[in-house]
Amino acid sequence: MATGQDEGASPFNIHPMDQFQIKPLFGGTEIHWYTPTNVTLWLFLTVAVISFLLVFLSRGRAAVPSRGQSMAEMTYGFVRKMVEDVAGKEGLKYFPYIMTLFTFILFANLLGLLPYSFTTTSHIAVTGVLALAVFLTVTAIGFVKHGAGFLKLFWVASAPTLALRLVLAMIELISYFVRPVSHSIRLGGNLMAGHAVIKVFAGFAGALGVGAVVPIFAIVGVYGLELLVACIQAYVFTILTCVYLNDALHPGH
């Protein structure tokens, strides 16, 4: 209570976390599981932009591609090569799933950088579902493909003594179950922090008058950095998914 009042009284009227609020699209305050919210809007804008890039721009099916078709093909080639390089030929079976993840995260991140937009991937609920889906899928693939042999992933056979192997198995097991946590928090945390920083600088700019030049330049810098983070985090999420998939397809060290 006290902190809330202090914030209101401060000359800097900064609410960096307001941008992450979830609001119903069509009025009202109740948020049921089915209520269309700003999350819904931006999720579907993301899907729409990806469809535009990969479906509409590639409609020509030209042997010599147009600019748009080239972009679609490069995105396709980039992800496909990543899957093949990291998870091998068998991994290509799951290419559409990984392509979905990559394009979704990339465009959700990039759309979130538009002013007044809403960043779906800054929410732990969203990234958590993405990471858990990867975790469950990969674990399921591992057990379906190798049965109990998948457990070899945790058994470092090259370790010299049995005691060491047991310790390593514990560590491997823990690190395996921490994967979805780090996977989701890495993405969500990066996005949230970056957007909050931009908002904080924006708040300074609003309060400083002429001196606002400094935070405005800072915003430009941070924005460029955030653009980089948006792409890199999408890449990191995807390549980690490929690594986990590779573990499931080829367990054992």
């Binding site: 579907f44 899907v47 979905t100 979704f104």
Partner: peptide, 17 residues
């Protein structure tokens, strides 16, 4: 709410792709 709409969007995107 978020999880529901995310799953809907992801399934739609997966099918489109």
């Amino acid at each position: 709410n978020q999880i529901f709409w995310l799953v809907v969007a992801l399934v739609a995107l997966y099918l489109i792709l």
